[in-house]
Amino acid sequence: MNTMVKVENLSKEYRLGVIGNGSLWKDIQSWNAKLQGKPDPWTRINEESRIGRRDRFWALKDVSFEVQQGERLGIIGRNGAGKSTLLKILSQITTPTKGTVKIRGRVGSLLEVGTGFHPDLTGRENVYLNGAILGMKKGEIDRNFDEIVAFSEIEPEFIDTPVKRYSSGMYVRLAFAVAAFLSSEILIADEVLAVGDIKFQEKCIGKMRDVSENDGRTILFVSHNIGAVRQLCQTGILLEHGQIREYGDVGMVLQAYETSLRG
């Protein structure tokens, strides 16, 4: 078994409140005051300093786990538990404050369906554009194009129409279909299944199981949909206030989550 993702002591800190003052002029005034040893003119009343200990907040704290090849890991937790921050770090969108992530192979991240879709471009053009944004080569898209269209259940005569004329269902189906044909070794998906009708959602989950079981692809899946997580994943992580509360078999983790929701 190959370890595909290794997360060690990952922490991410955010500063609360306003970063800087929002305008260059105010920052220059603050900076000038500091140089002259005067108090910052933009400090709020009864506040020690703008960058105090209190306005720091750990979105993730000391998170460590490993994902093996072919494993399907579900990440659950309530709003603000740090799920999206974790995925953003894994997708290289933002950097951690502490700790490291080591990854083997390519990462395809689906934090949103249809990233980079341009309403004025046709379905065909958007498939290529979106595919390229997700890291596919033109040749790969050429080879899979017919399958992508078939998967999206869009009638071939619509494919050369600008996507702004599509129904919202068609739009997301096409967008998801592109992602379904990503050939990266690791797939990261965040709530993308909250789109489309139940039938299409099941089809997507089926497709993800399929690529994981047949091609040994690794999947990290974040969702609030307990049913979908149970259906797809083998292992799970329950995040709470940026820390791992439960880690292991998906059934056990989901149970812990349900208890925490009631409590």
């Binding site: 080591k102 990854i103 390229a132």
Partner: peptide, 27 residues
Amino acid sequence: EEWDVVISAKRKRLGFDFKELRQYKDL
């Protein structure tokens, strides 16, 4: 060395990754 990507708090400063950019020429 076995890993393809290592993400840590370190920021890269000088080196510019032209090889990576070339992989995205279709984009």
